[in-house]
Amino acid sequence: MIPLVDYLLLSAVLFAIGVYGLVTKKNAMRLVFSVELMINAANINFVAFNRYLFQDALGETIVLFSIALAAAEAAVILAIVVVAYRIHDDVNVSELKNLEG
């Protein structure tokens, strides 16, 4: 039987990898990857807490909602990336400064 802490440690490492990608990468697609990794880390935490500390299935229900929200968010972000590529011929986020004051 794997203890709860192992799942939490794994999700902490996964979240830190996502933060590393968000800080260092300039490519918009890599930023999307990082955000998805961080969402997955949070979902692991929800299901692990639900499995080990509670009897009902509220955590799993929240994860279902979270997965659906992440799918909607990915669709919008990828549409924005496609539009930015069509306008700028590039997806480097330090080149996209149309909204900069």
Binding site: V13, F15, A16, V19, Y20, G21, V23
Partner: peptide
């Protein structure tokens, strides 16, 4: 980036 992620983890 490595320092930030390592501190958080």
């Amino acid at each position: 980036g490595v320092l930030t992620a390592a501190a958080l983890a």
